[in-house]
């Protein structure tokens, strides 16, 4: 009897899991499908599941905008912002994890609280700062803003990973004559590398998909893929075929990248939680 209940529970959980997965994946699947329709099929009611696929939307998208220009900007901004954020977050998380003071806890909470403010609340000051420092519509400017937005989360994640490294190992390094810098680079970093990698991955994904600041701080020169998608949304009304093609092109690289590294990502995100 008990075994039977267990089996039915397992089946139920499996169905629920698949249900949620399908529900979450459906928009992406529909976007992908729509990108191969012509504009008429894209807005037909009832929606068509089976149709003659066409690449016309892709062709038009490539004709109208320089996909590679936008992609390059996104790559520069994402990689740049992530690299700088990690470089700043490692020492910060190190000091919080291994040299905590009575205020470490509240500092961490304060850092996280900056994420709770809606970005639009600081839109005007950030815009003015960017304008006055001539960083409007530059990759540097966008990378700095992306980096700062993600820094709290990155510090938090690294802090959790570093906390998992037993302090005596670092102390052994210090007894062996390592300076703080050597202790960090030669002992801590190799041990925390999986955690750092998954943190960097998350930061990369967040930067890649970041739209609010991209749309407000860039126009043409430094516009990333999110702006590329947005450029297909309004001017001449909605063309769902082209919009879907542009969106597919924009999310494809990070989706593939995420898929390849999902093992690392899952390990990183559940690290500490399972122990």
């Amino acid at each position: 009897m008990a075994v039977k209940t267990k089996t039915s529970t397992r089946i139920g959980v499996t169905i629920l899991g698949w249900g949620i997965a399908v529900w979450l994946f459906f928009p992406i699947f529909w976007m992908f499908l729509t990108s191969f329709k012509n504009e008429i099929q894209a807005i037909s009611t009832p929606p068509k599941l089976f149709f003659m696929p066409t690449l016309s939307s892709y062709a038009e998208v490539f004709e109208r905008a320089s996909y590679w220009h936008f992609t390059l900007n996104t790559v520069i901004v994402s990689v740049g912002a992530t690299a700088i954020a990690i470089a700043l977050a490692v020492p910060a998380a190190y000091s919080m994890a291994f040299l905590p003071s009575s205020r470490t806890r509240s500092t961490l909470l304060w850092m996280l609280s900056t994420r709770m403010l809606p970005p639009v609340g600081v839109l005007v000051p950030i815009y003015l700062l960017a304008r006055n420092t001539h960083l409007l519509d530059t990759c540097t400017g966008l990378a700095i803003v992306d980096m700062l937005t993600n820094l709290p989360i990155i510090v938090w994640m690294l802090y959790t990973f570093f906390r998992e490294v037993p302090a005596p190992i670092l102390e052994a390094g210090r007894m062996d004559g390592a300076s703080r810098w050597q202790e960090m680079t030669m002992v801590l970093l190799p041990l925390a590398l999986p955690g750092i990698a998954s943190t960097a991955l998350l930061s990369l994904i967040l930067c890649w998909n970041e739209a609010f600041w991209s749309l407000n701080l860039t126009s043409s020169h430094a516009a990333p893929l999110t702006a590329f998608i947005a450029s297909f949304s309004s001017p001449e009304g909605l063309f769902f075929g082209k919009l879907s093609a542009a969106s597919t092109l924009a999310v494809a690289p990070i989706l593939v990248f995420g898929w390849i590294s999902q093992k690392q990502l899952v390990r990183g995100l559940t690290f500490g939680a399972v122990k």
């Binding site: 037993p166 190992i169 102390e171 052994a172 210090r174 007894m175 004559g177 041990l191």
Partner: peptide, 20 residues
Amino acid sequence: VEPGKRGLAMVFQSYALYPH
């Protein structure tokens, strides 16, 4: 004086070997 410069060596309870 820094720990590494005191001319001491320490054996920890948890061994604290460098796992990598």
